[in-house]
Simulated scan of single mutants.
Amino acid sequence: MRMSHFWTLLEDEFGPTYAGSLARDHVLGALGNRTVLQALTDGEPPRAVWDALCEDMGVPEERRLGRSTRVARGAPGGQGR
């Protein structure tokens, strides 16, 4: 997972304001009692940080890979045939 994808997932799931607060203040016990930002700064892979945060915050499995915003072909707003 790229860092940009991590931030997109974080903001999509929690909103831009709360995402920033979580990153600064939420301590991840699974990653050595570091905040999200500390863990990332220390070189933890973004995927490991995201997984630990999702576990702590109770994010359901079906939302951990992000929102599906693609529209099916032929649906209103989708690609033409």
Rank of each mutant, 00 (worst) to 15 (best):
M1R: 07
M1A: 12
R2V: 03
R2D: 14
M3A: 14
M3V: 12
S4G: 01
S4I: 07
S4V: 07
H5T: 09
H5Q: 11
H5P: 01
F6Q: 00
F6K: 00
F6S: 00
W7R: 09
W7I: 00
W7H: 12
W7Y: 15
W7P: 04
T8Q: 15
L9P: 05
E11M: 10
E11D: 13
D12P: 08
E13L: 14
E13R: 14
E13W: 04
F14M: 01
F14H: 06
F14C: 05
F14K: 03
F14W: 09
P16F: 02
T17W: 03
T17E: 14
Y18N: 15
Y18W: 15
A19R: 01
A19Q: 08
A19S: 12
G20T: 05
S21D: 09
S21T: 14
L22P: 05
A23D: 02
A23S: 13
R24F: 07
D25P: 01
D25W: 11
H26P: 02
H26N: 07
V27F: 05
L28R: 02
L28H: 03
L28C: 05
G29R: 12
G29K: 11
G29A: 15
A30G: 09
A30L: 12
L31D: 03
L31Q: 04
G32C: 12
G32Q: 12
G32D: 13
N33G: 07
N33Q: 14
R34H: 12
R34Q: 15
T35I: 02
T35V: 09
V36P: 07
V36D: 07
V36T: 11
A39N: 03
A39Q: 09
L40K: 06
L40D: 04
T41L: 04
D42V: 00
G43R: 02
G43N: 09
G43K: 08
E44N: 03
E44G: 00
P45D: 14
P45V: 13
P46M: 08
R47T: 14
A48L: 07
A48G: 01
A48H: 09
V49P: 06
W50E: 00
W50G: 00
W50V: 02
D51A: 15
D51R: 11
A52E: 02
A52M: 06
L53Q: 04
L53P: 08
C54L: 00
C54N: 05
C54H: 04
E55D: 10
E55M: 04
E55V: 08
D56F: 00
D56E: 13
M57L: 12
G58W: 06
V59Y: 01
V59F: 00
V59M: 01
P60M: 07
P60I: 05
E61L: 14
E61G: 04
E62L: 02
R63G: 01
R63F: 10
R63A: 10
R63C: 08
R63E: 09
R64I: 07
R64M: 03
L65C: 13
G66P: 10
G66Y: 09
G66R: 10
S68Q: 08
S68R: 10
T69K: 11
T69E: 12
R70G: 14
A72V: 11
A72K: 10
A72G: 10
R73V: 14
G74K: 11
G74P: 05
A75P: 08
A75N: 10
A75M: 14
P76N: 07
G78R: 02
G78T: 01
G78A: 05
Q79T: 15
Q79F: 10
G80W: 08
R81W: 13
R81T: 14
